[in-house]
Design a protein around this nucleic acid. Structure first.
Lengths: 197, 197
DNA sequence: GCAGTGTGTAAGTGGTTACTTGCTTTGCCA
DNA sequence: TGGCAAAGCAAGTAACCACTTACACACTGC
């Protein structure tokens, strides 16, 4: 593999483990299997390396929701699982970024590389449900979307830190969240085509 | 004020701003207005100081929910607001703790000083709603509680970091979350005493 | 007055950090 | 086979880290 890419991957991994201050150039070079001097010759400084590494690491595609809702339970369950898995996979890196944004505001621009936030995908989906009468009109789509996405986000961030609170499995959680979400927006099972009994 | 307490407060504040590695003994002593030597004479080491400071800083009381539900909308709205305000006030410190638990697992014991987790308070409340027929029985109280608390947690952690996503006000958000939560668990306005129209 | 306690300043310990300089080795392509 | 860019090694820079030693000063109770 290319040495530049090895360094970028190593930088993202070490950063996820130890944060900016803990991600020493020595440790990154060791992780990449190259000498520390090569790191500086390639990127000039630790800051330049980290910015490029974080930009690359946070370039994750957001799963889309269907333009034409057909089976909300299935569609939302799959989307929620994808959302959780994405967040859970990069949870260490995300936790570090969140804790260091105040000190290094520039790193949020790396993490914000995606053009649209997941919440807005779900918000549009709720609007489409409302448009065809599958969801109540007195529901604020922004707030509804933020509630489901927020619950999933917390699962991904906190689940492995205080397991005694999250005694149920993640599948049960996602299933429960989606069903509660649909009830909350007024999309009852039976009122639309669904696999629910 | 006592010098020990000044140092504990300064340590918690600097830690919230800069994390463990960034909270240098020099910076803590400067913040407390004492000399660095006094810090070491009082606490022996940086680690001992930080552990004591974090234990003290995370000793926050959890608002209780009433034993006898009477007005779920009002009770849950007040509880949610209290939960949000508590989390929002210590959000910087919480973000640092979350990002450093993997490296310093002992600090989670400080943060876990409260005997019961907020989720379990809400879980018991849902059980009481179910017991008196105000909530559906096919709802898992644990999952339902985790959804509302998770949504509030995300608001407190992320709201000030990506404001363009959270365009609505926090009061609208909490109000929407509570109303959606009650609809999801099957506690409709009108079925119980409530101020909802 | 005086011992004891707690604080301050000055200076310095060894270790680690990001980053540099000078020189040698490796590998690839013509 | 020769040239050359890219890697490595050894050594060192100044700054910063947690932490220590030595000593002076202020306050307290007796």
């Amino acid at each position: 593999m290319d040495i530049r890419e090895r360094l970028l991957g190593a930088a993202a991994q070490v950063y996820a483990e130890a944060g900016y201050r803990g991600a020493t150039t020595r440790r990154i070079a060791q992780q990449a299997g190259v000498s520390e001097i090569t790191l500086f010759r390639q990127f000039g400084s630790k800051e330049a390396l980290m910015l490029e590494a974080l930009t690359a690491a946070s370039r994750t595609a957001v799963l889309a929701l269907p333009e034409e809702p057909a089976d909300p339970v299935r569609e939302l369950t799959e989307w929620s699982r994808g959302r959780f898995e994405t967040l859970f996979r990069i949870r260490s890196l995300l936790r570090k970024v969140m804790s260091e944004v105040e000190e290094h505001p520039e790193i949020i621009n790396c993490a914000k590389s995606y053009p649209r936030h997941p919440v807005s995908f779900l918000e549009q989906y709720v609007r489409r449900l409302q448009a065809r009468g599958w969801a109540a009109d007195d529901i604020n789509p922004k707030v509804a979307a933020a509630m489901l996405v927020g619950a999933i986000f917390t699962e991904a961030m906190v689940r492995d830190m205080i397991p005694e609170v999250y005694s149920y499995g993640i599948e049960d959680a996602l299933d429960g969240y989606v069903r509660m979400f649909l009830r909350a927006v007024g999309c009852e099972a039976g009122s639309v085509a669904t696999r629910q009994p």
